[in-house]
Simulated scan of single mutants.
Amino acid sequence: MIEQSSRQATIAAPPRPQTVHTLLTPCLDLSCAATVAGSVRCWFVDPQPGNSYTGAMTPFQSQAVAAKFASYPPEAREALLALREIAWETARSMPEVGGIEETLKWGEPAYGTKSKVGSTVRMDWKTRAPGSYALYFNCQTDLVETFRTLFPNDFVFEGNRALVFRLGETIPADSVAFCMAAAFSYHLNKKKQRSSAPRRSGR
């Protein structure tokens, strides 16, 4: 749960996994016997040397999303998989939002709340900027403006819609988790703010 007052905000950070695993690439065959309830649970080890992923992999929910991640260059894929796992861990720490679902939106991996109480988060790497990747938020919200105030030194900002990361640099996981939590509870928090605002008495 997020509490904001005078642009101050706190969030209980999701548990940080400690185990380092070899980076896994999803098996894209959804007819595979290892596939359960429509989630991709079959994996093979990425043969690229030096690839690693911190934490257990959350299974993909669709072949389209799995294929999108498989299409990224190895370094970009590793970084985006780390962002993806932060999204899942953050959502699991927020039962009040009712869980998230993973889809492609505008061709990019997207994470939105099933209950529609949040604002969708997207992530992507693009060939026109091969040295970086980004986490995208709805530009019609004040989310990125808030992040710019709270975390001026943690991110590179792209207008009012994105946090930009450089490949090879450490992801500020706790700050990213806060930003994702703010998005996943965006409409819920706005509703709470409206209901708690003092009412003007009529004459």
Rank of each mutant, 00 (worst) to 15 (best):
A70W: 00
A56T: 12
A12Q: 15
E108P: 01
L83N: 03
S52R: 13
Y53N: 09
T54Y: 00
V40T: 07
T54C: 12
A33T: 14
K126H: 11
R122I: 00
K126S: 10
R128I: 01
A87M: 11
P74T: 09
V97Y: 03
A110G: 09
L30T: 11
N51S: 14
Y72G: 07
T113R: 07
Q61R: 13
G50S: 04
M123D: 02
S115V: 08
T113K: 03
L83E: 05
P17T: 09
R41I: 03
A9H: 05
T22E: 13
P95Y: 03
V36C: 05
Y111P: 03
I86G: 01
T19Q: 13
L24A: 12
E85H: 02
I86V: 15
T58C: 10
S52L: 07
R16L: 13
I86N: 01
L104G: 05
W88S: 04
Y72V: 08
Q18M: 10
G107L: 06
A79R: 07
L104T: 06
R16P: 01
P14V: 03
D29S: 11
I11D: 01
V121L: 09
E101Y: 09
W106P: 02
V121D: 01
A79G: 11
A9G: 09
V40I: 15
L80N: 04
K114D: 05
A129N: 12
L104V: 08
W106L: 10
A110V: 06
K105S: 15
G118S: 05
D29R: 10
M123P: 02
A70S: 15
T25D: 11
A91P: 06
S52Q: 14
P109K: 00
C42G: 08
K126I: 00
A64F: 00
R122L: 12
P73M: 04
D124M: 09
K68C: 12
L24F: 04
C42S: 15
Q63C: 11
R16H: 07
R92E: 15
K114T: 14
L81V: 10
P109I: 01
F44G: 08
S71E: 07
D29M: 09
G112R: 11
V40K: 04
G55T: 01
A70M: 12
A64C: 08
